[in-house]
Nucleic acid binder design. Structure first.
Lengths: 206, 206, 206, 206
DNA sequence: TCGTAATCGAGACGGTACGTCGGGTCTTACG
DNA sequence: CGTAAGACCCGACGTACCGTCTCGATTACGA
């Protein structure tokens, strides 16, 4: 099947060296000067690349950054040797969730992740198209891990069978996300532990 | 003591007509063309105002929009005749929370609020200073109402006394916020009702 | 009568300092690096001026240069204290023409005039609109002086009465112009003297 | 002796088909969109040729066009069956010159010659190197024909023996050239006839 | 009641970045 | 090898806005 647009670039001739340099430059600039002051020209110049080489493969600054961040995430995952990742299942749901959320807390404090992911989240709020990619390619795959773990817990009797896991996970994941994104409160192990307890046992007296 | 700088404009001479026109133009433009394509020049021209008049009183596009939105919120609240607002207390905590969250669902679907508040939230993620104002002037006052209602419930015995209300409210408020901001799922009455149930009674079997 | 276009700039607010700086920069650059390597960006940067300030008042590089050159010519003429210029009339037509053409030879060898006027001539060949302005504002006024002198000579009996002065002047002016523009031969006093003799007395034996 | 550089392409392997296509494309584009909007990329794409094939054999757009135009001129001359061309010698110099100049007038009005030769002339004014080739390969050979004819006339007594034919011819050729190049006046048979009369018999009364 | 000092509408200005075009070089696959 | 194709680095284009800076023309005090 032929390409549908005029001027569809030839992927096979693409320069891997340029792509890497662009990813590195984009992430570095966002970390150093912040997302709004990061410009396509700045990325190009830092990467030692022509502007056109960026425009040939991406449609916007946000687009570049999303790919750069996805690449970074994949690299990080591979480096950790855990590509088919999943939440551990020790039989104790509360303990497992607390463990994972504590790891998430650490990650959220890592400045290398902070700047780009915050920027992408922000852009995604206002840019429909990017928001969709952000959610589909970054967020949902992570959330799916919680769905799996909760479903396992349901089968083991640790979670009520009528509970919808996709909603249930939001009880502890969304609060953490909001605190981080909007700086509405401190992010600590104690906080995430508390979220898990509240979510599992409810606010009402038993 | 005299003012030492060339700045410090005289508030008493300020043109009310201009301020109103700027608010209206800012909100209209954000709704029509979106936040990124809204420019200071555009606001000035639409408001029939010189650029300097904007720069004299605000420091940035986001700054203008935040004030415009605060003004809009106050107007809306006054129009509803309920300025010192609070969450109703019928004695039935679940019912009260569900009622309020349903009202919030309706508000989130109102396009007049949608565009500016989403834009402000996005800007706040990336702009530290604006983020603080956004949270302090818009978000926290709303959350405080939940704190009050939950504390009342604790005294009435409907919520465990060791629960921290500021954290507890996040169990149902943050999921709704995230779904709305990041389009991670549908926003319905059923959904918010479910959140309240899960939060109050927990995910684990009783 | 109101202006006919959207965004007609306000001439009265125009910055004289910027205009001067732009003229100087344009002429200097054309002289230093040549017309093709002279860029609007280069002019703007050298003049310490924003690009938009150039685009606001001129439509192209050639347009700027033409105005710069006209300004230079006027300045030079004023400096010479001879604004309402004319060809001298000593009664001896041949002598007067030789005198003026020798002055022209000197001028054509002046590097300050050389670069810009050659560039403008070249651009005018290919750019209809500019060509018209070039001819009307620079060339024709000069040629008119010859028309006047030749007409005076006709009345004095030094030129046949049936001769069209506008054509006659081309016999000595055009050859000089072509030699200069196209480097088709040396430009000397001897050469222009010869042209005058040939033109006045013809090639055929008498 | 081997070639020392990476350059120096092998002329014998050159693709004749490509050269023809490039000439055609260049001339067509100059005629259609004008010289400034004619680009190397445009020529290559229209000729169905890689850019490198152009850069291998020519050094610039002007260079291509000059060769294309020379080729066109040769073709035209051959088609007219008069390759070793010369100005006719009927014994009547005035008549012969008028005849040839009338033919030139016709040629100057031919749109197929107009666009490229005007473009080349313009480029030659500003581009030293091209200007030399333009004059040497196109202009001078033509002018030489007038030199020959004038010399013949001198021997026949129709032109004064002390007259320099190379200068003499400029009296009627240059005015025509200037009018055409700079649009400084209409180009008609009457005009060229007049030029010949003025040049031969002079402006002064006899 | 009238200066007079501020704000105001307007928009020119020096800049930065945009997204596009084309230049000239280099690489790949084919004939 | 020469060639068609086109990606690449680069420089300039012409445009959009930024935030600052004059300009009169209102406008609202305070003498």
């Amino acid at each position: 099947m032929a390409q549908n647009q005029s001027s569809a670039p030839d992927t096979s001739r693409r320069s891997e060296r340029s792509r890497r340099a662009i990813y590195d430059a984009a992430l570095a600039l966002v970390a150093e000067v912040g997302y709004p002051k990061t410009t396509i020209e700045g990325i190009a110049s830092r990467a030692g690349v022509g502007k056109q080489t960026i425009y040939r493969w991406w449609s916007s600054k946000a687009d570049v950054l999303l790919d750069a961040f996805l690449d970074l995430s994949n690299q990080a995952a591979e480096a950790a040797g855990q590509v088919p990742y999943s939440i551990p299942d020790s039989g104790d749901l509360a303990a497992d969730l607390k463990y994972v959320l504590r790891a998430t807390v650490d990650e959220l404090h890592d400045p290398a992740f902070e700047a780009p992911s915050r920027a992408l989240a922000a852009e995604g709020l206002v840019n429909e198209e990017l928001g969709r990619r952000f959610v589909a390619q970054l967020l949902e795959p992570q959330l799916q891990l919680y769905v799996d773990r909760l479903r396992a817990a349901q089968e083991a009797g640790g979670v009520r069978p009528d509970v919808d896991p996709r909603i249930a996970l939001e009880l502890f994941v969304s609060p953490l996300a909001q605190r981080w994104l909007q700086h509405t409160g401190p992010i600590t192990y104690e906080y995430t532990d508390t979220l898990v307890d509240y979510a599992l046992h409810g606010l009402a007296p038993r």
